[in-house]
Design a protein around this nucleic acid. Structure first.
Lengths: 224, 224
DNA sequence: TCAAAGCTTTCAATAACCTTTCAATTAATA
DNA sequence: TATTAATTGAAAGGTTATTGAAAGCTTTGA
């Protein structure tokens, strides 16, 4: 997790760098807004900690700039300004959280955790197999970022294969998933569905391999 | 935007209910943890405001329960406990934000906005999907900058779809948003409203796709 | 080579959804 | 307040996608 710390107070910056590094974050610090802009262009970050009292540009203005440039990073403001209005303005301008100095390191730590959790999907677990993405939280399957048009049964088949990508899934397993309370399906129902799914995922280089006598397996080529 | 307010102080609950309602949120209040669990099971919410000092179960424990049940709702804790430890624990247990009483209503309002923005809108309080804009701060929907003439129900349907643009929203979710306290709607009411909304947004190249058996999805073509 | 296992296509029944119409209600306007 | 307009939700009939069964074809491995 890469954090950009924009802070001109050298002592505080060093302290934070040390603390955050020690709990596993990779931290880069810059002391001015212009440096911040520069480094954001050449390096990828996951989160920004922004001090409002910068020497060159006002922090709120920098924040506005980020957002108008559609930089979607989570931003936590850290500042000495305690008055309510700048707190409100900070959040209104697009910050995700706000802490005032002096602050407790432990609290900063958990607030960072909360932000990361929220922004980088502690909840929705996304499984990526090649060009297919499965969002397990809402059972949505995307191919190249586009919604894949699947009927609900087709979707169920592909989901179970994606979840076990690279492993053999036996027909019975799939049948269980498709039928309600074990009502029998025609003996070739699974074959029909696999066929339909194959047709739909082929354009995305995804392939369901048949393991004779055992079941099916979604190929999971790790050549990235 | 449906908010569940879990708060046992009746005066405060009423005040918040009134304030939040007046700025366009739909608020349900419950006074106990068990009621909260009950209502969360039968109704969908977009955000939870949780008081830690509840009469039956400790708020933190409730929070842990939510998260262990993988309820991914954004949760803002509101409490009289000012000490640092419970603040840290609150966030660590899975809350997204934390405010201590007494608090400023304006600040609560913007923090709610920030949460909503982060969880549903990327990073702006204006959610832009193609030529449609939803301003989450006042629940207004614009098309090409002009007000879109929608009835309140139509507006509710479109809002919920805009908030989850690109994701499937199931019919039940929409039905809950439309009806008060689960009064039944005709089985095709949603279909009728979706139909009406479709007709109105079509001139703006916006499209609601039907995902058979699952629900609807506002297309969110990322070709910018 | 010949079963067995799997593939593919077709088709009718059905369930899910769409669309229109209309009457009842509510809100707006004169 | 009387009139008009808009909104709402129920009903009914039309449309389309999904489903699963059937039947014939192809591949596989003993």
């Amino acid at each position: 997790m890469n954090i950009l710390l924009i802070e001109d107070d050298e002592v505080l910056a060093d302290g934070l760098l040390h603390t955050l590094s020690s709990i596993g974050y990779r931290v880069s610090t810059v002391a001015t807004a212009s440096l911040a802009e520069y480094i954001l262009n050449i390096q990828e970050f996951d989160l920004v900690i922004l001090d409002l009292g910068l020497p060159d540009i006002d922090g709120l203005r920098l924040l506005r700039q980020f957002r108008s440039q559609k930089i979607p990073l989570p931003i936590l403001i850290l500042t000495a300004r305690d008055d309510l209005n700048s707190r409100i303005e900070g959040i209104r301008q697009g910050a995700d959280d706000y802490m005032t100095k002096p602050f407790d390191l432990k609290e900063l730590e958990v607030r960072l955790q909360a932000l990361i959790r929220r922004c980088y999907g502690g909840f929705s677990h996304i499984i990526k197999i090649g060009r297919l993405h499965l969002d397990t939280s809402n059972h949505q399957i995307l191919a190249d970022g586009e919604f894949l048009s699947l009927s609900s049964r087709e979707s169920a088949v592909l989901e179970i294969l994606l979840l076990q990508a690279g492993k053999v899934v036996c027909k019975e397993r799939i049948a269980q998933r498709l039928s309600y309370e074990g009502e029998a399906l025609a003996d070739n129902a699974i074959e029909v569905y696999v066929h339909r799914v194959r047709k739909k995922i082929k354009p995305f280089d995804a392939n369901i391999r048949t393991i004779r006598g055992l079941g099916y397996l979604l190929e999971n080529e790790n050549h990235d």
